[in-house]
Nucleic acid binder design. Structure first.
Length: 307
DNA sequence: TTCCGGTGCT
DNA sequence: AGCACCGGAA
């Protein structure tokens, strides 16, 4: 037993009705108005918003989601795009491999599911770029299914409000999943609101470092606040990779240069100007090539992939 | 300078 | 289980 995040004896249905009763009205008043919410888009729009939101705040996703949906409003449309087009349209959203996975995902949805976004966990996680979280999010938010959507925000809110402690780092454990399953309202429609509202609370109020407890609808029943916020923000985090001088920075510079280049093409001399250390530059060019994010020509010039 | 996070690979 | 991957806000 390695988990001490939540106490084990809080699993009966009645323990959570007050939680939902406080959360639902808060959601009604405070939900941010994104176009992929409130049933205003289809399953493809939801899937796109969820992939774009991986590792990325929704406020930053919004303009990209709108421009992508304007051009690629369905899987069969995105399936026809070139890699260069999607990498270019990804702009500075970050983690550009997601753009490639999204196109492959669209192609598989067309080839395997007749262009319809699947609605089962097994089918969804079999798609490129779709892991546990995104599969559950699509089932809940696109298809209205009663599924616990266990992201980092929900883990933090549940661990605090019900368990009275900070959630640990690492993958969600069985105890956390069990808690989310038990706290989830039995009614499917209510469960979708619960997932969205809990996630939103974690994103906007019950934040990692400085929770706005004064504005929290769960303030009066929160075990974490009652205990005096023990170990606030002490989540075990990955060792911080300093950005300057990393491959991550160099890869970003190379891709940015190609995005802005005429015909997305640069000679080796031109690309050499983005980074002085040629050994590291070459390593990053090789890794971008391995990721399928660039193509290397015979003369060592670079392009975004035509395919 | 530090913080934030889901997927996929090792 | 640990790590690489991103850019922008705090």
């Amino acid at each position: 037993m390695t988990d001490h995040t939540v106490s084990p004896d809080v699993h009966s249905d009645d323990d959570y009705s007050a939680y939902h009763d406080a959360l639902a009205p808060w959601w009604a008043d405070h939900a941010r108005d994104f176009p992929w919410r409130f049933g205003r888009t289809d399953a493809w729009g939801v899937l796109l918003s969820e992939v774009m939101s991986q590792q990325t705040p929704m406020t930053r996703v919004l303009p990209y989601w709108q421009s992508w949906m304007a051009v690629w409003s369905s899987p069969d449309k995105l399936a026809e795009a070139t890699a260069a087009e999607v990498i270019s349209a990804w702009g500075t959203l970050g983690y550009p491999r997601r753009a490639l996975r999204l196109r492959e995902c669209a192609q598989e949805i067309v080839a395997r599911f007749g262009g319809r976004v699947p609605d089962t966990y097994e089918e969804l996680v079999s798609l490129p770029g779709i892991g546990d979280y995104t599969a559950c999010a699509v089932m809940a938010f696109a298809y209205g299914k009663r599924v616990p959507v266990v992201d980092t925000n929900i883990r933090r809110v549940l661990s605090r409000a019900i368990g009275g402690a900070e959630s640990l780092g690492g993958a969600a454990n069985a105890s956390e999943r069990k808690l989310a399953e038990n706290a989830l309202p039995r009614d499917a429609r209510m469960s979708v609101i619960w997932n969205q509202a809990t996630m939103e609370l974690g994103a906007t109020v019950c934040t990692a470092k400085s929770p706005a407890c004064d504005e929290c609808p769960l303030r009066s029943e929160c075990k974490f606040a009652q205990a005096g916020w023990p170990g606030l923000g002490q989540k075990r985090t990955r060792p911080r990779q300093t950005f300057t001088g990393t491959n991550r920075q160099v890869r970003g510079k190379i891709l940015k240069a190609l995005r802005h280049a005429d015909e997305h093409h640069l000679s080796y001399d031109e690309i050499s100007q983005v980074w002085a250390d040629s050994v590291q530059l070459d390593a990053c060019i090789a890794s971008l090539d391995e990721d399928g994010l660039i193509e290397i020509r015979e003369d060592h010039s670079l392009t975004l992939p035509l395919g």
